Computed example of a mutant assay.
Amino acid sequence: MKYIYFLFLLIICSCTKDNLHIQPPDPVQEPFNLSNGLGKKLENPYAVRNIKIALTHLQSKHGTSALAPELKPTHLLVRFLPKTYEDMLLLEADSTLYYDSVPYGYENSADLSYYQDPSIPKDQYTWQYAIVDYDYIFPQVHYEVLEELYRPQDEEDEIEALAYKVTRNHFNRS
């Protein structure tokens, strides 16, 4: 009977909705740096320049010499630098935005869930990385575009696989 009661409490407690609590930066929290977790920087297979290289390889493989239509970026790799709690709330308010303090494009060998950029003081918010649609309307938070990306369509699997090969990354299409 105690087991059933415990199980019931566990289910009830786990079903409650978590409220969003954005905390200010913790100056005591130890920052991570490149030497303790991010690992090696990887070449981005979705960068427009790498997709173009993959297209060139694909054309030579099929014996076509016609130039591919101009590739237009579909997404942007960006990073936001929130200065205030209100800036963080603006990012959080956007239901289409998925961001992370851990920069994209690294091995992340320590499976980090948080990264404090060493160039930013520990008592300030760190960079928040995201991939957004090319026509994304940015909130009033400081940001930088790091790279233009092209996301291949479903029928462009071969291009995507070649882009991974060009960048020497492992291709795993799920």
Rank of each mutant, 00 (worst) to 15 (best):
I4R: 14
Y5L: 15
Y5C: 10
F6L: 14
L7S: 15
L7H: 14
L7W: 12
L7V: 13
L10F: 14
S14F: 14
C15A: 14
C15L: 15
K17G: 00
D18W: 05
D18E: 14
D18N: 12
H21C: 11
I22Y: 04
P24G: 10
D26T: 10
D26G: 08
P27D: 10
P27Y: 08
P27M: 11
P27I: 11
Q29P: 00
Q29D: 09
P31R: 14
P31E: 01
F32W: 03
N33S: 14
N33V: 07
N33Q: 12
N33L: 08
L34F: 05
S35R: 14
N36I: 09
N36S: 10
G37C: 09
L38T: 08
G39S: 13
G39M: 11
K40P: 01
K40H: 12
K41I: 11
K41L: 13
E43W: 05
E43V: 11
E43A: 09
A47M: 03
A47S: 13
V48W: 05
V48T: 12
R49V: 07
R49Q: 11
K52T: 06
I53Q: 01
I53N: 03
A54C: 08
A54G: 04
L55I: 08
T56E: 12
S60L: 15
H62N: 13
H62R: 14
T64D: 04
L67Y: 06
L67C: 05
E70R: 14
E70D: 08
E70W: 06
L71G: 00
L71I: 13
L71T: 07
P73T: 08
H75A: 04
L77Y: 12
V78H: 02
V78W: 00
V78G: 03
R79D: 00
R79N: 03
F80W: 05
P82A: 04
K83G: 07
T84S: 13
M88S: 01
L89V: 06
L90R: 08
L91W: 02
L91G: 02
A93G: 07
S95D: 13
T96S: 14
L97E: 04
Y99R: 03
Y99N: 03
S101E: 04
S101N: 07
P103L: 03
Y104P: 01
Y104C: 03
G105M: 05
Y106Q: 06
Y106G: 02
Y106N: 03
Y106K: 10
E107W: 09
E107D: 12
D111S: 15
D111A: 15
D111C: 11
S113A: 09
Y114L: 06
Y114S: 06
Y114V: 06
Q116P: 02
S119Q: 14
P121F: 09
D123L: 07
Q124V: 02
Q124P: 01
W127G: 03
Y129W: 15
Y129E: 00
A130T: 02
A130I: 04
A130H: 01
I131A: 00
I131F: 08
D133C: 05
D135R: 13
D135F: 10
D135P: 03
Y136N: 01
Y136P: 02
I137P: 00
I137Q: 12
I137K: 13
F138T: 04
F138H: 05
F138S: 04
F138D: 01
Q140T: 12
V141E: 00
V145P: 08
L146I: 15
L146C: 09
E147K: 12
E147W: 11
E148P: 04
